[in-house]
Design a binder for these strands. Structure first.
Lengths: 160, 160
DNA sequence: ATCGAAGCGTTATATTATATCAAGTCATCC
DNA sequence: GGATGACTTGATATAATATAACGCTTCGAT
């Protein structure tokens, strides 16, 4: 399982890799990574956490972008539709994709204490897809979000 | 896989079984299935679909219950906390539990055409839990929601 | 009967997200 | 190089979902 989220790491690399991957995909597919879309992705990569749409909007408007909700929702729609970001349903929040470029069904591990979110790959989907197919249901996308305690918060909790 | 949602069935049985299960669990655990909570569960069982909180609230207020949001959210919180109903994150909607009494990690199959929701059992969780544990993450609850096309809508689609 | 916890009524507000329409931008075709 | 059409953005308004807070009531235990 490749997992991103709880290890220490050189974060500037994440941002660079993420932006590069998005640029490449957009170039290859004729998608327009416009100023606002690019900036939202940068913010998500830099912050490296699940962010509410209005958190992002606040940052954008501080930087001179328009301050209406559609500004950020449009950018997020684009990023999510093209796999550069994901929505965390449980938190109504958005996070940069940790495996950009790969086609994948992500699994999110969400810490209920600190709300840190890690993205991992699913060890399971084909089984579920086959089981669903048996009753005639055709799965197109799957959301998997596991809530619990991250390593860091488990330590803190037991220490208290 | 036991699946509930796409088959034809005698629906009054569902309601009776669901209410009975909730009553039994409440009696066993000292929980109070008050008038409002009971009525919300009945509504969810009768409608047999994912309903928005405000849809339910509308029905309640038509019946003489108070018409403020907390009325329904409190009842839903109780029902969800005790396993009598589930929240469908993808739809911001609530649905009666199809396997009342069993402890289970549900998997929902959501039709993107008609929004019908079926609840099935997960063929997978232990694998995910073990994988998460290897990186120190302790999973407590898991949300699995698969979106796609139900048998009925697939037929209609190909017919068109 | 009284006490404390749980539940409910009510007002107000917070949070998240979308509809709509006009104006701007960009690539392409002629 | 101007017309065209698809896509993108600006801006206003509103919809949809959910919670905070406070006081009163109800219930069950002592």
């Amino acid at each position: 399982m490749q997992t991103v989220g709880f290890e220490n790491h050189d974060h500037t690399v994440c941002v660079g890799v993420g932006m590069k991957a998005a640029e490449d995909v957009c170039a290859a597919q004729g998608l327009r990574l416009t100023k606002g879309r690019r900036r939202v992705l940068e913010i998500l990569l830099q912050e490296h956490r699940a962010m509410g749409a209005y958190d992002i909007l606040g940052m954008l408007s501080d930087e001179g972008f328009a301050s209406q909700p559609p500004v950020v929702y449009r950018a997020l729609d684009f990023l999510v539709a093209n796999g550069f970001a994901h929505k965390i349903q449980k938190l109504n929040a958005y996070i940069a994709c940790a495996h950009p470029g790969d086609s994948h069904t992500p699994v999110f591990l969400i810490c209920r204490a600190c709300e840190t979110v890690a993205e991992t790959a699913a060890p399971l989907q084909s089984t579920l897809g086959e089981a669903a197919e048996k009753i005639g249901f055709k799965i197109e996308t799957t959301i998997v979000e596991a809530e619990g305690m991250c390593p860091r918060c488990r330590e803190t909790e037991t220490a208290v």
